[in-house]
Every structure is written in structure tokens, then in C-alpha cells.
Write a protein that binds this DNA or RNA. Sequence first.
DNA 1: ATGTCTCACTCGGTGAGA
Length: 262
Amino acid sequence: MKLATWNVNSLKVRLPQVLDWLENSPVEALCLQELKLADDKFPIDAFTEVGYQACWAGQKTYNGVAIITKTAGTDIQRNLPNFEDHQQRIIATTLPSPAGDIRVVSAYCPNGQAVGSDKYEYKLKWFMALQEWLRQELERYPRLAVLGDYNVAPHDEDVHDPKKWEGDILVSEPERAAFNALLSLGFTDSFREFEQEDKSFTWWDYRRFAFRRNAGLRIDHVLLSDALKRYCSACTIDKSPRGNEQPSDHTPVVATLDFQCA
DNA sequence: ATGTCTCACTCGGTGAGA
């Protein structure tokens, strides 16, 4: 089975691309971020028409997350229970798998704007709360997958020009420490479990022809708990939607779980 | 290059956020 994540930067604009992508890349679960639409505007009918179900936590204008699933999810959780926040950045659900139930989280971690800003402080606090919550989730659901836009490039190899970006937002040491603290709970950055091309990125600024120059960052990740990692046979970045008109500035990341191969 | 894209507010130009 495949699990995927994609920051679509407006589901209203990108819905045809998402439906097209699902048709060509069937997955058990597709985690979406930056829906930028209110709950009552979520295009649930478009997904049910093509055989998918969904759960979502929407918000007007900004943020918003969803999980598009083949089978109905249970035990749906919106937002971090331990963090007072009107911004919709988390949704989680439980899905059946051959190895038993797996817990899937779609996360849109704060961007942080600039190191030292109010939004940066919010980002670091939010990550602390995410860490505490995931620690509890892991106890309850050992098979746990956390997919999303983390807005952190974990290592210099995840940055097209590490010197230019040094200490900047998305790569600063406190942000990387917050990301590593999640891994310390017992998660693996599944992309790095496999051989990958140099300069593999998931996000490119819309400006300055960044995609054409491959001036990107790898900030969208699939974190798998130890109990799931053993089934993971591949993790890839799918740049194909960049060939569309009006592409998102992020591309999908897809992890394959093979329950025969454990 | 303050570079582009999206949405809100409101019908066109500006501000916020990424």
C-alpha cells in the first residue's frame, strides 16, 4: 500500500490536479496540506465520485489539512489536543492494514516566516506540542505514519544552496533540532532509507524560476514509526505534477509499504 | 530582483502569508 503527502496550496485551485494525480497514482491515503478552504467548501463529492473517502480540518483563507483514503478512517482527530490554536494544521485517522491498524497523520507545520519573528516562536512552540502529542500517539498506535509539510529541511543535502540558506528560516538549528526531536521519539525519515538522487527537493519558490534551476528544499516528509518502517520498500518524490498548468510549489512524496516483505 | 502565487475585500488595487 502507498501513503502520500502533498501540499497543494489551495485545494480549490488544485482539485483537478489532485483528482488527475489520484487516477494515475492510486494510494491508500493521500495527506493534503494548505487546503485554504472552509470545512463546508471541502469538495467531498469530487472524491467520493472517484472512489475515495476523506476527512478534513478546513479553515478559510489559510492552512487546512485532509486525508483522502480508499477505506473509511476511524477515530478521527483534528488538531493537537494539547495546543490551543485556531489554525487547522493536523488531522489524523486510523486505517486497516494487513499488519493491523495504522495511524496516519497529515501535518502542516508552521512556516515561521523569519528567524526571531513571532511566527518563528509559534513554530517552535507548535513543534514542542507536536512532539508531546506524537509521544502519546505512538504509545496508543505503534504503527504510526506522520506525513506532511514540516517546513524544515533536515540536513544541508536537503538544501540547494546551503551556504546561502545558512541559519535562515526552514534550515535554522532550532528548527532542525525540533525536527530531530520528533525522530528521537522513534521515527525515521523514510526518504533517506533509500538511495536517492542528489539534489532531491519537494518545494521550490515560485519566484526566480526556482523550479527550472532546481533551487529547492526538501521540506515535505514521510515519518514512519519503527513498527512501520520495517515494511517500507520505497519512498519517492513525484515531480510529475510540475508539468501541469498552475502547479503547486510543492510536489507529492510517496512511501510504499509492502506487508509481504517484513 | 521587493522576483510569484493565492485569498480576502470588493470590482481594482492592496495586504497577508507562504
